[in-house]
Amino acid sequence: MRKSVLAAAFTLACTAGLLNLPVATAAPAGTVESVAPLSPAATLPGSANSARLLYSSTTANNVPATASAAVYFPPGEPPAGGWPVIAWAHGTVGLGDNCAYSVAGPGAVERDWAYLGTWLQQGYAIVAADYAGLGTPGEHPYLNGIVEAHNVVDAVRAATAQYPSLAKKWVVVGQSQGGGAAVYTARYATEFGGPELDYRGAVGTGVPAYIEDILTLLGPGMPPVKLSPHTTGYVLYILNGLRTTYPELNIESFLTDAGRSWLAKAREDCLVPLGDELAAAGVVIGNLFSKPLNQIPNLHGLLTNYLGLPESGYDKPVFLGQGLRDTDVITPETLRFAAVLQANGEPVRLHTYPEDHSGAVNASLRDSVPFVRGLFG
């Protein structure tokens, strides 16, 4: 089991106190810690001189952490001022270190290579953050929006500091989990990035919105409706994210023995194999719980702070692309989120497609490519 960053920091602090030694301060966010070649599985076809960066960032509860990212360059010479940057926020791959994008690539989600390849062909370098705890020490606080925003911004800061061929101007683009991460990044990019980075806007597809409203219903009384294995896997990942972000909640105490077993398995298994195992076992979500999750005081407020998408405060344009046949996220809620942003006067543009969760990704390119081109002027 991976040792938590918090436990490691506590041990270091105690040891330093006993020995009367100074405790090393955390490196500034976005400091490059190491650079290494990418594995073939994690190398975007058509990219040049790609690399894996380890860099300083933060994880849940603002604890310092090391994060990782893949950096992909277009072939040829960079334009004057450097390659403009697409910060790629990937969708759900799992929680285990072996699931990390910069380790295993998109795995079975080959649509991502086609999608990222299009941005590469448009002349953008791509900085793909893994998120804290994926491929690096510590647990991954799945769907913790503030953590993901820090990780994405810090990856851009690290990459642009490491490579003079990268411009400081950048856009965040994400799908599914990464769509939510892109929205959070859009809200906080200017604040987190500071004046040294030139943030221009965001693209999010398959964005999971208002799932905090659904999660309050989790418990043993849920109807035994057959859901997709991916949906059950998402729930287990969210429970793990809550456990990491709010350890005081003792999430395990709300689960049955089977629930605790599946929770532990979800901490290591990538999405596709986890889904296969859940399907083979015929797991029903209600059977994972021994008592309702809404027994947690202020559960909805905690969930909103953890993964609820910000409804205001965006300072640059946001593109939302949504498949109308998408059942991985709650499509009516995503459309509601776009309507709320529009009603609040936020700079959002909504595009819909007659596609499912995966199909909308590449279908949206016909609209998002010119949108991003306009952001870069």
Rank of each mutant, 00 (worst) to 15 (best):
T92K: 00
E33A: 12
G206M: 13
D257P: 06
P224N: 12
P332A: 10
T43Y: 03
L218E: 01
L227S: 05
P224D: 13
V103H: 13
W119Y: 03
L375K: 02
P137V: 04
S312D: 12
I330H: 05
A129S: 13
L227V: 15
I146D: 15
L350E: 04
A108L: 06
D315G: 05
N49G: 14
R366N: 09
L53E: 01
A41T: 08
Q122D: 05
P224Y: 04
A159F: 01
G275S: 12
A281L: 11
A48L: 09
T205N: 03
G180S: 06
I251D: 10
G313R: 10
Q342R: 10
E77G: 04
P137Q: 05
A87Q: 10
Q175C: 08
F73V: 01
G135C: 13
A51S: 10
E333M: 15
G323D: 12
N240Q: 11
G359V: 00
G206W: 06
V109T: 09
E148S: 11
P40S: 14
T352Q: 07
H357Y: 03
W83N: 12
L21K: 15
G82M: 05
G123M: 04
A189M: 01
A281Y: 11
I211G: 06
E33S: 09
K3I: 15
L293W: 11
Y188I: 02
L236R: 06
L271K: 05
T15N: 02
S368K: 04
Y115P: 10
Y188Q: 10
G259H: 02
A69P: 01
T304Y: 15
V207A: 00
N144V: 02
T256V: 04
E212Q: 07
G94L: 05
D154V: 02
Y234V: 07
I86V: 13
F319L: 05
E110Q: 15
V147Y: 01
R325T: 15
S4I: 03
L12D: 14
A209R: 00
G301S: 11
E355A: 10
V272C: 03
V172W: 08
G201V: 00
A42H: 12
N298F: 12
L116P: 13
A128W: 09
Q342I: 08
H150M: 09
P224S: 08
Q175A: 10
L218S: 02
G135Q: 06
S50W: 02
W119C: 03
A202H: 01
A209D: 03
A189K: 03
N298H: 08
Y314A: 02
S364V: 06
G123T: 07
A132Q: 14
S39A: 14
G323N: 03
N305Q: 15
S165W: 05
T205E: 00
D276N: 14
R111S: 11
A149W: 02
A36I: 01
R243F: 03
V153A: 08
E346D: 06
R267K: 15
L95C: 08
D326N: 08
L274D: 00
L53C: 13
R325H: 12
R366S: 14
R325Q: 15
A343Y: 11
E77K: 10
A264Q: 12
L299K: 04
E77R: 08
L309P: 12
G359T: 00
S50K: 03
N294E: 01
A29C: 12
Y188D: 06
L215W: 07
L303E: 10
